[in-house]
């Protein structure tokens, strides 16, 4: 029992989790048909990248990786505010959130 309590976790597992989360974010970006959910998938990808930053910061004992995550969080907050405002503006103009119906810029 003490064996499992003292077990260390290889950092490769964390990186693998980060890779899987990033891929799930891409899949969500591809298959979701709602503008807000597509935006959420982007946030999921940002979070996956943040996790690998923290993992490498732990690996190299370098605090700059964590600071980078801090900046990513700030930029993500700004991006979410502007992005959601754009979504509201699009909804006002087109009265829909389905990405298939927002196709003015398509050829």
């Amino acid at each position: 029992m003490t064996h499992i309590l003292q077990q260390e976790v290889p950092l490769a597992l964390y990186l693998l989790l980060s890779a899987v989360l990033f891929s799930l974010g891409i899949v969500g970006f591809l298959i979701k048909r709602n503008l807000i959910t597509v935006f959420m998938s982007i946030e999921l990808m940002l979070n996956a990248v943040n996790l690998s930053f923290v993992v490498f910061s732990h690996q190299w004992h370098a605090v700059k990786g964590q600071i980078f995550v801090f900046f990513v969080m700030m930029v993500a907050a700004a991006e979410a505010a502007v992005g959601l405002a754009i979504i509201i503006a699009v909804f006002r103009a087109r009265a829909t959130l389905a990405v298939d119906r927002i196709d003015l810029m398509k050829l």
Binding site: Q66, V69, M73
Partner: peptide
């Protein structure tokens, strides 16, 4: 992973 500040910021900000 030893990033206490980021854990708090993750909960508060994200």
């Amino acid at each position: 992973l030893g990033a206490e500040f980021l854990a708090a910021a993750q909960v508060i900000v994200y």
